[in-house]
């Protein structure tokens, strides 16, 4: 069986790693590279670096930040998202050190162009980042620039069905940063049952993560803010998720009672 992954998310705004709450409020955390180094040491399975102001600024990917991270010699695979406007932007982000690329705004603007990224990079290197909510019993897809939600576009679903993008990061943006906020209806309503999914947004507690990761099409769960509140948060979370096919934590706490509290 393929192992599932626990992804550590670093959200970057104005150059600072931040806690993000509901795509609206932000609290500063520190230097992205120091947080990445810490997640790497703790044994997270993948790091998602998402620069949330790059799409609106139109400045392309934050290559300088990627290069700073790479100089740290991290061993954890890195996903980069933010400001990817073209095939060349995606290629440059990979050349700067990202293993994979997350695309968000481009899927609204030109989903077929997003699919063209698979030519030079391969589908395995592409993740669709979809901020979703449930509206009148159906999925609504947010464009974070305009803050307007619309139904999932047929062109998007066509691109996903073509296999040009390997995984979908399904973001519960309304409950991002809310303890135990993740709305599992997003997974239940997702229309493509064999599409590998990553769940993100309001996943804070082991029981909730376990429920999400036990779904067959969920290949990973992503956690952001909550990994910054405790020492050894990744190790403790993984210890609490024992029995799931996850890579073992580094230096797991010895006392099971303190695994996650």
């Amino acid at each position: 069986m393929l192992e599932k992954r626990l992804i550590g998310v670093i959200t970057v705004k104005d150059g600072w790693a931040v806690q993000s709450i509901g795509y609206r409020r932000h609290r500063p955390l520190g230097r992205p590279e120091v947080i990445a180094e810490n997640l790497d040491r703790w044994g997270v399975d993948e790091i998602l670096l998402q620069c949330i102001d790059r799409d609106a600024q139109g400045g392309g990917p934050d290559l300088a930040l990627l290069e700073r991270l790479c100089r740290r010699g991290l061993s954890t695979p890195l996903v980069y998202a933010g400001g990817v406007r073209s095939v060349s932007d995606g290629v440059r982000a990979v050349q700067a050190g990202a293993e994979r690329i997350g695309i968000d705004a481009l899927l609204h603007d030109d989903p077929h162009l997003a699919a063209e990224l698979a030519e030079p990079l391969g589908a395995q290197a592409l993740i669709a980042v979809l901020p979703l909510s449930v509206h009148n019993g159906a999925l609504a897809w947010l464009d974070h620039r305009s803050r307007l939600s619309t139904p999932l576009a047929p062109a998007l679903l066509d691109v996903l069905a073509s296999g040009a993008i390997s995984e979908v990061l399904l973001v519960d943006w309304q409950h991002e940063g809310v303890h135990e906020g993740f709305d599992e209806r997003l997974l239940a309503l997702w229309p493509m049952p064999t599409q590998p999914l990553i769940a993100f947004g309001g996943l804070s507690e082991p029981s909730q993560l376990r429920g999400v990761l036990e779904r067959p099409n969920v290949v990973a769960a992503a956690v952001g803010n909550f990994l910054n509140h405790r020492e050894h948060a990744v190790q403790r979370l993984k210890q609490s998720l024992a029995g799931l096919p996850l890579r073992a934590a580094t230096h797991a706490p010895l006392d099971p009672a303190r695994a996650w509290s």
Binding site: R27, P28, L29, N38, N228, E231
Partner: peptide, 18 residues
């Protein structure tokens, strides 16, 4: 305002270094 009081943040090596 790095954290909410309700985050109940605890001491970490990362915060000290950063």
């Amino acid at each position: 305002g790095m954290y909410s009081h309700e985050d109940e943040v605890e001491m970490t090596r990362r915060h000290r270094q950063d």
